[in-house]
């Protein structure tokens, strides 16, 4: 437990110190929220889910920043590999699973902080403050998204030698996951093929879970969301741990 905490602590410390990273990774979600939200607010109404489009967008954008931050945190172990720090950790008398879990929880924590910042900023663009229970539900889903996708990031990083492939991950993994998640459009309105893709995207359940927390309504039953996301995160921890175990120094 203390080893997991140690690695968690390092991740969180590094995150809190890199102001440019915090501000930098707020840029894109805010851009989406403000430009897209206000740009389309007057033309788009989504009757059954929410009154205005900005409001509809908030859970998706929160999920987006959690998604980006967590995958990036996972992939960060490539930097550790390149800067040699990973060796220091791997040669210590600790098990790989402890290292992996520390990294996962560290990444998830930074992702939750990042999501929370977006959530707080959303209050300024018209998000109504939900009850404390609602916030907790939203946090819970953020945590699950964070754990799942940090593990995915670690799994990917375990197979990569350097950061050259990162653009590939951005284009063919992170963006599709975000784009298909129903973060920007209601699932109902999608053509059937896209709808099944959307329903196969784990992030969809995160977005809807957070939506339920914030507004009390969602397009998918929140218990379904919880079930799917829990299974996804657990599976990802196993995949990540399995691949990380094989990492060579």
């Amino acid at each position: 437990m203390d080893v997991i905490y140690t690695i968690w602590l390092r991740n969180v410390k590094r995150y809190l110190r890199s102001r440019s990273r915090i501000v930098g990774s707020l840029g894109m979600p805010l851009f989406f929220l403000i430009i897209l939200g206000f740009g389309l607010n007057s033309v788009v109404t989504i009757p059954s889910v929410s009154e205005n489009y900005v409001e509809f967008l908030v859970p998706g954008i929160v999920s987006m920043s959690v998604l980006f931050t967590s995958i990036f945190s996972g992939v960060q172990i490539i930097w550790d590999k390149q800067f040699g720090f990973l060796k220091e950790t791997l040669v210590a008398p600790v098990s790989r699973i402890e290292i992996m879990l520390g990294q996962t929880f560290g990444g998830a924590t930074t992702a939750i902080i990042q999501g929370t910042i977006i959530l707080v900023l959303s209050l300024f663009v018209g998000l109504n403050i939900p009850g404390i229970g609602g916030f907790l539900i939203a946090f819970g889903f953020m945590a699950l998204i964070g754990v799942g996708f940090t593990s995915l990031g670690i799994a990917i990083a375990s197979r990569m030698e350097d950061m050259n492939g990162f653009q590939l991950i951005m284009s063919f993994l992170i963006f599709p996951i975000f784009g298909l998640s129903g973060a920007m459009f209601p699932i109902e309105s999608l053509p059937p093929m896209f709808r099944s893709l959307t329903l196969a995207d784990p992030l969809t359940y995160g977005v809807e879970g957070i939506r339920f927390g914030l507004y009390g309504v969602s397009q998918i039953n929140p218990l379904t969301c919880l079930g799917v996301l829990l299974s996804f995160s657990t599976a990802m921890i196993f995949v990540g741990a399995f691949l990380f175990r094989k990492v060579k120094m």
């Binding site: 140690t6 390092r10 410390k13 110190r17 800067f83 040699g84 220091e88 040669v91 210590a92």
Partner: peptide
């Protein structure tokens, strides 16, 4: 692993942490 210390040929410090924190990280890990 418990009975050895190792200084690798290539650097293996976390540059974003202080010297003290690098030591502390190691101590906690062990």
């Amino acid at each position: 692993r418990k009975s050895i210390g190792i200084v690798f040929q290539d650097p293996s410090l976390d540059e974003e942490l202080t010297g003290w924190e690098n030591m502390d990280f190691h101590g906690r890990l062990y």
